[in-house]
Amino acid sequence: MEEKILAIIKENAGDHVDWMNEDKIVDKELIDSLDMVAIIGELSDEFDIEISADEMTPENFNSISAIVAMVSRLNEEQN
């Protein structure tokens, strides 16, 4: 799962950031809102989950591991 998520991020937000070691993605505004929209869309498609607006928090998106945790949780809740 981590691989897929990383790929989606790289594809939409670019390669210039060391995503794996970054833990302040939202705080440092490393992804702009439009890219975020695209990423969320792909995550929803890829993992068959619904990511609502409530989920768009720093806690969930500040690092790759946080995103992974969120996706797993939503997957369990909804599937």
Binding site: N12, L34, D35, V37, A38, I40, G41, E42, S44, D45, I51, S52, A53
Partner: peptide, 29 residues
């Protein structure tokens, strides 16, 4: 938000990204 994250939106976004660069990113909005 529901419209932005809807399937057709993300599809348009993907298409836009590949074909129209910066404006393309905005299309889903």
């Amino acid at each position: 938000f529901p419209l932005t994250f809807a399937h057709f939106s993300t599809k348009i976004g993907k298409w836009g990204r590949h074909h129209l660069k910066t404006i393309g990113k905005q299309l889903p909005a």
